[in-house]
């Protein structure tokens, strides 16, 4: 449990190096065999440079099953007050008193899930904050590749010839459209769970049941 103490003595980018050593699955891997890490990050704002991560939630999908045993929800110590952002994520300063250091959480994430395909809804936020966190913690960040369920949904609706509004792509609207149970929105783990359910449904609904990771990535890029 004191692993993180040791880490500080080692070269800072060891974690990054380790992470980068494990390659992504090849693009012709069927999505049914991919290991997905579904991630959601709650922050004090949208600017990765000036705002801070307040919580991270994640869970693992293997063989198209969400494994709840591996679900994690980590509150992060912030250097400043969460202030007005509490309105969204419901986390107030007092809740964060038992929070972990950001380094601890990011290290755990990178060490355990190297080689997993990262997934998020509106993934650019997660990508920016994660990259920024790594740069600050290790001096350099791995290049994070994400599958974005919002992009997938946009593609799906586009293929159906539908007129798409921005609000149709919000997570609760997507859950509704897929007849999936609603969770508490803006809670990192609950949102990660919702995003995972959405991904399972999207994968099943795709016309191509033998879809490969490469094809999924292409869809996700839009």
């Amino acid at each position: 449990m004191f692993d993180w103490l040791k880490l500080k003595k080692e070269p800072v980018h060891a974690v990054v190096q380790q992470f980068e050593l494990v390659a992504w699955p090849s693009p012709d891997t069927p999505v049914s065999q991919c290991r997905f890490l579904v991630l959601d990050i709650e922050t004090t704002g949208l600017d990765a440079k000036n705002d801070h991560i307040v919580s991270i939630g994640w869970l693992l999908i293997e063989h198209q099953e969400i494994n709840l045993a591996q679900a994690r929800h980590v509150l992060i110590k912030t250097p400043v007050s969460v202030g007005q952002s509490a309105v969204f994520h419901g986390l107030h300063d007092k809740d964060l008193s038992e929070a972990q250091e950001l380094a601890e959480a990011i290290t755990e994430l990178l060490q355990q899930y190297a080689g997993a395909v990262f997934v998020a809804h509106h993934a650019s936020i997660e990508q920016k904050f994660l990259t920024m966190a790594c740069q600050r913690l290790y001096g350099r960040s791995p290049k994070f590749k994400f599958i974005d369920t919002m992009q997938l949904e946009w593609q799906r609706l586009l293929n159906q010839g539908k007129v798409i509004h921005q609000r149709d792509l919000r997570l609760p609207s997507c859950l509704n459209r897929h007849h999936l149970p609603q969770s508490q929105h803006h809670h990192a783990l609950e949102d990660a769970f919702s995003c995972a359910l959405l991904l399972l449904s999207q994968l099943k609904k795709s016309r191509d049941q033998q879809m490969t990771l490469g094809e999924l990535q292409a869809l996700s890029r839009g």
Binding site: I66, L197, K204
Partner: peptide, 28 residues
């Protein structure tokens, strides 16, 4: 209890394996 659960999404016509030694709980 919930830590021992995994979640799967089935689509109409999918066959659900019946020989696994675990309990299926229908959610939706």
């Amino acid at each position: 209890l919930s830590k021992h659960i995994s979640v799967y999404y089935y689509q109409a016509q999918d066959k659900v394996p019946t020989n696994g030694r675990r309990l299926l709980i229908v959610r939706t």
